[in-house]
Design a protein around this nucleic acid. Structure first.
Lengths: 168, 168
DNA sequence: TCCTCACCATCCGTTTCGGACTATCCCAAC
DNA sequence: GTTGGGATAGTCCGAAACGGATGGTGAGGA
């Protein structure tokens, strides 16, 4: 008698990370998110405690609890969870798309382009560098990860072009 | 004795749109959002009823109510509201940035790049076209608006490049 | 006159957010 | 061994966001 739950983007992030990593505690998920997908899709850490529990209740994850010490909970995918993830990746992506960029918002509402550009260039330069290091640093990585990172780099370069034009 | 409220991105969108448009009802705000900033930063319509009310209570907006008919509420900026908007545009943008793109998320978690690319190209082609029409269609527009639109177009072109590489 | 459709607004249950708070563990210094 | 500090790990809860269901109002046409 599994509980019925609906799966949102957050759910799939959890499933996806567990698929990549094999097994993890919420705390480890938190680190994984921070180091990967969190760069463009943030998830509050408290969700990474409640969401796996929810998914486990619905049979997508199995839960193993340490017997001693901190009694951490380790989660891993069940067959059902793996299935759900596969189905999701194979289905067309929702149209819903969002670029929540406070810098662009300020620009839209009349901030001085030149002053904003200086600051934004700095921000994006930093981020670009970080992405490029990741790309070179990590040797082997799954193809999807690498491609998503490439996309990120592409967008950062686009930001550099854009703000550079305004900076002069 | 004004009520104390904290201003978030949504608040500034409301202030900003009223600054651009002079005066508006929540319903008009909804349309303005849909036609402009909503393209990259969505706001649920119900917020566009509650947020102006909240801002009015705190003295950032003034409220004028139609005496007959539907008794719609028209909002406009007070000096205080205009001030808050100016301060915000002049302050450095928060680092917090997000690209919520379900397509990239699926790519990250292992979707077949080629199949995803076909679908994404279509989506982005549509959006790009729409932006370009806006750019050409609207004659005069505030500089910020035009620049933000240019940024959007830049990113869409980047998407086209990216997914095209994967599409072959 | 009545109907219908577009316009307009509110409500409210659910989900998400994010920050404050607490607990635990490890190791080093005393 | 005991104390203390920093990294690790988890919980909680009020506030905000979400989004869909619902209902009213008015203009124009049949």
């Amino acid at each position: 008698m599994k509980e019925q739950v609906s799966l949102g983007a957050t759910s799939y992030v959890v499933l996806g990370l567990l698929d990549l990593g094999g097994e993890a505690t919420p705390y480890e998920l938190k680190q994984l998110v921070a180091a990967s997908v969190g760069n463009f899709w943030s998830i509050p850490h408290s969700q990474l405690y409640s969401e796996p529990a929810r998914l486990a209740r619905a049979g997508y994850l199995s839960e193993r609890r340490e017997s001693g010490g901190r009694r951490r909970k380790h989660y891993s995918l069940t067959a059902r969870g793996r299935r759900a993830l596969k189905d999701w990746t194979a289905s067309p992506a929702e149209r819903h798309w969002e670029l929540r960029d406070p810098g662009l918002l300020k620009l839209f509402f009349g901030a001085d382009p030149e002053r904003l550009a200086g600051e934004q260039l700095e921000t994006h330069r930093g981020r670009l560098k970080q992405y490029e290091q990741l790309m070179n640093g990590l040797g082997e990585m799954p193809e999807g990860t690498r491609l998503a990172l490439e996309a990120g780099i592409g967008h950062e370069r686009e930001y550099m072009r854009f703000w550079s034009k305004l900076a002069r």
